[in-house]
């Protein structure tokens, strides 16, 4: 082959492949409205995308499998976890379990949380050719961190907000005045737990633990589900 032939091969190869690529791009654009539900791409969703960018969420998480692999993929987080879970989690993402990788609290406003969730909901409905794939089998791992339901998350928030950690420890973190709660779920039943939270003296007359009568019933319930899960 002559150098001139090689040059023409380069020029025409580039031109033809670029042309095909642009043609595919134009065709792709035509499919976007249906595949990504652009009719549901509201201003709120766009505002949620801006929240996503503002806090550089993509710098730890992947979305559509793209981004950084430090934290879980969020493509389907809405359909998997739901609205209530996300609201609770974004309010207080810091896990009291020090063994787990930690997400710093971004101190999102309630408005930002609503928008971010709208964005994640829209993303979860994108037609991704069935990615992520359904696992072939689902394995159970013993000693795995507890499954965080919305209720448990809320309980975690109650635990943090009421500073239970000043006296109690979970996984080595917290105070030493009260008993270690790392495995409290194996030792105590839920009724006992809710009783001691509402009225500690009725369970143990010598306890130093203060009562928490201001907690609403659903807060106590959430806290109890959180504690019961610690095994």
């Amino acid at each position: 082959m002559e150098k001139k032939t090689a040059r023409n091969f380069f020029i025409w190869g580039t031109v033809i492949c670029t042309a095909i690529f642009i043609w595919l791009t134009i065709d792709t654009h035509k499919t976007i409205p249906e595949r990504t539900n652009t009719d549901k791409l509201t201003d709120e969703v766009v505002a949620g995308k801006r929240v996503w960018h503002k806090y550089n969420c993509n710098g730890c998480h992947t979305i559509l499998g793209i981004g950084v692999y430090y934290s879980p993929d969020v493509t389907k987080v809405y359909s998997k976890r739901g609205d209530i879970w996300l609201k609770e989690y974004l309010k207080n993402p810091e896990s009291p379990d020090p063994k787990r990788r930690k997400m710093p609290n971004q101190n999102l406003s309630a408005d930002e949380i609503t928008k971010a969730i709208a964005f994640l909901q829209w993303v979860s409905e994108i037609d991704t050719n069935d990615w992520p794939p359904t696992p072939i089998t689902v394995a159970k791992v013993t000693g795995a961190p507890l499954e965080e339901t919305a209720m448990i998350l809320k309980g975690k928030t109650v635990y943090t907000q009421n500073r239970c950690d000043l006296c109690h420890r979970i996984g080595g973190q917290g105070g030493v005045i009260g008993p270690d709660l790392s495995k409290v779920g194996t030792a105590k039943v839920p009724q006992w737990l809710s009783q001691i939270i509402k009225n500690p003296i009725s369970v143990n007359p010598n306890t130093q633990m203060p009562a928490y009568p201001h907690l609403a019933d659903d807060e106590v319930q959430a806290l109890v589900s959180f504690l019961s899960g610690l095994k």
Binding site: P72, P132, P133, P135, V138, A139, V141, A144, P145
Partner: peptide, 13 residues
């Protein structure tokens, strides 16, 4: 572990 066996992200880490 994560994709094929469906074990949770942080456990796999």
């Amino acid at each position: 572990l994560q994709r094929i066996l469906g074990i949770e992200f942080l456990t796999v880490q």
